[in-house]
Design a protein around this nucleic acid. Structure first.
Length: 386
DNA sequence: GCTTCCCGCCAGCGG
DNA sequence: CCGCTGGCGGGAAGC
């Protein structure tokens, strides 16, 4: 029952575009399903509980799947893999990316997408959803009726992966979306196509941002908005604090001084935009890529001053930062998915976390009221939820 | 006036 | 044939 809002009607319409962003939706989605008891997720259920149209669920689910958090199980059904699956997925993406285009993202050939009608041979099938493996063997363009491949090529999921690869396989930790679109599309694309791609990248960027994989910034000089990769560190399962701390130390320059200005490594990023010359850009990309293939996965930086956090949606408990601060340094540093996932699980021994969770539930209810009813504030007292 | 990007139409596809 | 999927781009909110 359309409990979604109606932008047009509704006296006192409190329509706020930001409240409906994909990023927010993603946060909500994550906090809703990131629990141990969750195994499968029904799209209808998700749409209903989040108070959005099904179409939107597809959007986030597709990018989440491409990152490994979810896996399609059947029609209308996804299984929750969890944040723990992310590192592995990223690693695979990186390997694939490097392998795929042997010499870097040299334009058109590799990650491109075909043009309108008229199929095209190359089909880098990096998709497979089924198992937790993304791609059994580096699917180069082997035999493959590119009938529907064409569609797949343009999927949000694939685009997400390619976008991520851009960061993993290259060391441009800052790129503006139209640049990315051009690179991913290949050369000389009709502007219209680029525009569409950019729109999609915005969608993707929003959800990746909400998960703190990337962060929006501006080129120190150009002022042009761009996204920077924050990434996460590797490691597959256990979550010993020690390991985390140890890992912390190899955080490199990234976390410390990059805060808001230039650093050597970003010189490339800085230059990129100014370079209209295709050849030069390619060369730069290739160069950097070779520079260091190892530093792909690292802990997202965390400026000292920043209140850190992870705010989950509109109902983000304001207590989060406090709880964390009082929790010890390590807690504050831990910014990886596993620990994050853990901290949001109810059965935590820590009192602070328990309280936090309670608060969270409450906040969620009020938020739910908001989407279910219309005005967040009393006014007409909404209907009973739960 | 440009950037960001939500909305929902409607083509494909799977069952 | 009918739902589920999800590409796509108009056009409006945001800055």
């Amino acid at each position: 029952m359309a409990l979604a809002s109606d932008p047009s009607k509704d006296s006192r319409s409190t329509y706020c575009r930001k409240q409906k962003s994909l990023g927010l939706l993603c946060s909500n989605f994550l906090s809703l399903y990131n629990r141990e008891d969750v195994e499968t997720i029904g799209l209808d259920d998700a749409a209903r509980r989040l108070g959005v149209e099904r179409r939107r669920i597809y959007d986030i689910v597709n990018v989440l799947e491409s990152i490994g958090v979810l896996a399609r199980k059947a029609k209308n059904r996804y299984s929750w893999k969890g944040f723990g699956a992310i590192p592995r997925t990223l690693q695979q993406l990186k390997e694939e990316g490097l392998k795929e285009n042997g010499s870097g993202f040299d334009g058109s050939s590799s990650v491109k997408g075909s043009d309108d009608d008229e199929d095209d041979r190359d089909s880098n099938t990096i998709y497979s959803s089924q198992t937790d493996k993304l791609n059994p063997n580096s699917g180069f363009n082997s035999a493959g009726p590119c009938k529907s491949e064409n569609r797949r090529e343009k999927s949000l999921g694939l685009l997400t992966q390619n976008f991520v690869k851009l960061f993993l396989c290259t060391h441009v930790d800052m790129i503006c979306l139209d640049e990315a679109a051009k690179i991913l599309l290949g050369d000389g694309r009709p502007p219209a196509m680029t525009r569409t791609k950019v729109r999609r990248l915005y969608d993707i960027a929003n959800v990746l941002s909400s998960m703190k994989f990337i962060e929006k910034t501006h080129h120190p000089e150009t002022r042009k908005p761009a996204f920077r990769w924050l990434g996460l560190r590797e490691r597959s399962e256990d979550k010993s604090v020690d390991a985390l701390c140890a890992n912390e130390s190899k955080k490199r320059v990234f976390g410390t001084e990059l805060t808001n200005t230039t650093i050597k490594r970003s010189r490339v990023a800085l230059t990129m935009d100014g370079i209209s010359d295709e050849a030069t850009r390619k060369r730069l990309l290739t160069e950097v890529k070779c520079e260091n293939l190892e530093n792909d996965i690292h802990i997202p930086k965390q400026e000292p001053g920043c209140k850190k956090s992870y705010h989950f949606g509109p109902f983000a408990p304001p207590t989060v930062s406090q709880a964390e601060v009082s929790e010890t340094d390590r807690m504050k540093r831990v910014h990886d998915w596993e620990s994050l996932a853990s901290s949001y699980r109810p059965q935590y021994h820590n009192q602070a976390l328990k309280d936090l969770f309670a608060h969270y539930v409450q906040a969620w209810k009020s938020w739910y009221l908001e989407v279910a009813g219309k005005n967040p504030i009393h006014l007409m007292s909404g209907r009973a939820l739960s």
